[in-house]
């Protein structure tokens, strides 16, 4: 694993991109890394562009925002169009294919994940797409340990929502074949 991993999770307000970033960050803390997680959202509570960024490193992190990402998680067409240019050539792109019409040809590794569709059919809970994407990210990159993520989920969501979120995370893990 490289010394510094920069992740951007982008989508629409209400998709839980901030929560996904928060859980990823907390998981990295459990793994003993240094972490900074930031977020950006519009003034509206729902529907505007939202993103969450996580920098995971072995040493102290100065500048907290992602400039070039190692991993981009795009949960909307807009997010993909806007941020693809910031993805490193040897980076990893994960798209929620239920939300994105087309993915351009790029050098980076691409994972098409039917997150929203699976969340609706398997979990009957559309808002868990973020956990499916997180599972796919963890499987595709090995950036953090699975145990750490599950621990972070239980710390970050309400008791009654833990089971379904962990279920979503595990679905995401399975969707990516290494």
């Amino acid at each position: 694993m490289q010394k510094r991993n920069e992740v951007r999770i982008a989508g629409l307000g209400g998709q839980g991109v901030v929560l996904a970033g928060k859980i990823l960050g907390r998981a990295a803390v459990h793994d003993g890394k240094r972490v900074v997680q930031t977020q950006s959202y519009g003034a509206e509570a729902r529907g505007s562009a939202a993103k969450s960024e996580v920098i995971i490193a072995d040493e102290r992190i100065g500048f907290p925002k992602v400039r070039k990402c190692d991993v981009l998680v795009a949960m909307s067409q807009n997010a993909l169009d806007k941020y693809l240019k910031d993805l490193k050539e040897d980076g990893t792109l994960l798209v929620d294919e239920s939300m994105v019409r087309e993915v351009p040809e790029i050098k980076a590794r691409v994972f098409n994940v039917p997150a929203t569709k699976m969340a609706e059919t398997k979990l009957k809970l559309k808002i868990c797409a973020n956990m499916i994407m997180l599972g796919a990210l963890v499987k595709a990159t090995g950036m953090v340990s699975q145990e750490a993520v599950e621990k972070a989920i239980t710390q970050s969501v309400l008791d009654k929502a833990q089971k379904v979120n962990i279920q979503g995370f595990r679905i995401g893990l399975e969707l990516v074949k290494q």
Binding site: K22, G25, R26, V29, R34, V35, V36, Q37, T38, Q39, I61, P64, K65
Partner: peptide, 9 residues
Amino acid sequence: EVVAHMREQ
């Protein structure tokens, strides 16, 4: 806003 909303150790 950055310092207030960021998460770190």
